[in-house]
Amino acid sequence: MSSQPSDYQRLDARAVKATVDRLTGRIRARFPERNLGEVSASLSGAIDELLLRPQARWYGWARIASRVVVFLLIAVLFIALAVLIGQAADDRQPESVWEWVQIVESVINDIVFVSIAVFFLWQLPLRWERSHDLASLHRLRSLAHVIDMHQLTKDPDRLRADFRKTPQTVELGMTAAELSNYLDYCSELLSLVSKTAALFAEHTQDNTVLQTVDSIEDLTTGMGREIWQKIALLPGRAPREIDAEHRVPGGYGA
């Protein structure tokens, strides 16, 4: 069955998760003793818990309920206005200007209060959804910083022949090729964090959420740029070691 053209114009949470899962397997296969694979698994878990949107049905019902209440409030307002107009048209219409002022004031108060209630109820489901999205994006921002911490101490200068250790030097424990792979995995993870954040822009027009997505994309882009600067400084520009059994057709190797 052929896919609709729109299928190629939108990010799919399940496809992003599948890419993260493949990357997790590649990291664990090459660096089983390091925790970077657990960070990648955490990103996959974030997509499971937050982006497949288990509360989406609940948000839908809340939106329907708020719209029903809004309709009832507007109906009550129109009924009240019709009653007041009917009273003013019959024989019991007010005899003084002050009585007219009281009626107009009552009508204005009713309209203002109903308008405030309508605005609040209309926006309530959107506020709940925004709160959920911002909490999810905050988790992704934290994951980006965790990934950055994993590469922060991986200094390629330690692999130089003229590097002099100090008592405070942390052992790298990697060859140039292994460090190249490790840093590249960090770069891919940051890119997938950015793609995961972009999933939120697929279903919302909320400016706060969109601005937060943009800030995460800027953050991960800056971090990725620093990683590639490290890769460029590796002695001899050590090539990545690619295992054929982990190669992804049409994508990156391991």
Rank of each mutant, 00 (worst) to 15 (best):
A88I: 11
G173C: 04
H203G: 06
W128F: 14
P5C: 06
S215Q: 10
I85V: 13
S42C: 03
W58L: 12
A238C: 14
V68L: 15
L192K: 07
E241G: 07
S106T: 08
V118R: 02
L51S: 03
Y185L: 04
E241D: 13
W61E: 13
A135G: 09
R34F: 06
D48P: 11
W228F: 10
W128S: 11
L210H: 09
S2V: 13
S2A: 14
V107K: 01
D7M: 14
T212A: 14
V68Q: 12
G251K: 05
F120A: 13
R67A: 14
A161I: 05
T204C: 08
I103S: 02
V213Q: 05
I74G: 03
S191H: 07
E178G: 02
A197W: 00
A176M: 10
L137W: 02
R14V: 09
S215L: 04
G222L: 09
R130S: 15
K165W: 11
Y59A: 08
L219P: 05
A29N: 08
L50A: 06
L43N: 01
A89M: 04
G222N: 07
S42R: 04
E129Q: 15
P32H: 14
D133I: 02
L159E: 01
R127M: 12
V39L: 08
Q123V: 10
D157T: 08
W98M: 12
H138I: 08
E226F: 05
H138P: 00
A15P: 00
N35I: 07
E178T: 00
R28G: 06
W228C: 01
L234D: 09
E226S: 10
L52D: 11
I74H: 00
T221I: 03
V16A: 11
R26M: 10
D133T: 11
V39P: 03
E241Q: 11
A46N: 08
I216H: 04
K154T: 06
S44A: 14
I85A: 15
Q9S: 11
R28E: 06
T153S: 10
V193F: 00
M149G: 13
L143H: 01
R26A: 08
R10K: 09
K17D: 07
L52I: 12
G250F: 10
A75M: 09
M174Q: 07
A135W: 05
A82V: 07
D90Y: 03
E33Q: 12
G222E: 05
T153M: 14
A56Y: 04
A177N: 15
D148R: 06
R247K: 14
A201N: 13
R130Q: 15
H138L: 12
L159M: 07
Q211M: 15
L73W: 05
V118H: 01
L159T: 07
I242Q: 06
F119S: 05
L192W: 02
F113W: 07
G222I: 02
K165F: 11
R164K: 15
V69S: 09
L137E: 05
R14Q: 08
S194Q: 02
L152F: 08
P239Y: 04
V209T: 15
A62F: 05
V68P: 07
H138G: 12
H145N: 08
D206Y: 09
